[in-house]
Amino acid sequence: MDWTALWLSLRLGLVTLAILLPVGLLVGRWLACSRFPGKGFVEAAFALPLVLPPTVVGYYLLVSIGGATPIGQFWNATFGHNLVFSFEGLVLASVIVNLPFAIQPMQRAFEAIAPEIREAAAVSGLSPWQVLLRIDLPLAWPGVAMGLVLTFAHTLGEFGVVLMVGGSIPGETKTIAIAIYDRVQAFDTQGAGIMAATLLMMSLVVLGLTYRLSSNVGRRHGG
């Protein structure tokens, strides 16, 4: 069992969550509540990582944040190391590939709230922020939780982008998914099996809990 890799994966998952929670809430609610020309293309752009092969996303990340690019050079000058093949680079990649996993469930949950409910909140004297905190979030939280769980589980399992952008540096970019691949390559079937089973159990438990919680909420609101 490669504890370093597991810990790195968990850390990557948590940091990704911390970034995608506010991003998903704001973008998801914005897409759910507003209509504007070209909205379909904006939604498509956020959904792209769902359909693109991870290697394609990884390739574009490499050519846009690599050491020779302006972003890469700026990063190097500011922090003294390259963005690619570092934990920070991995976080950036993870945030980008997980955008649809976080945004879409949250957007659907916000869309399920009737617009009159928000209007009623506004005419009851609630400011837009209070409407978000006191009306939208309590009603949409199963969807928000689902977005977070999907993001976390997907981060643990992400392989292609991590390999392209992070490589396999122990303690820095070698996640559990990469470690499993390494073990298989080294014909260590038992080591790979233990890690794979761990990942499988974690994903199942987290997803199962989320489904159970959200079905309870559905019953409570009579919906």
Partner: peptide
């Protein structure tokens, strides 16, 4: 003025009560 700054009581057709 935004709705929350207008002192208005509004009863919606389907009431729009906060379900939670």
């Amino acid at each position: 003025l935004p709705p929350h700054k207008r002192r208005v009581g509004f009863v919606f057709q389907n009431y729009a009560l906060f379900p939670h």
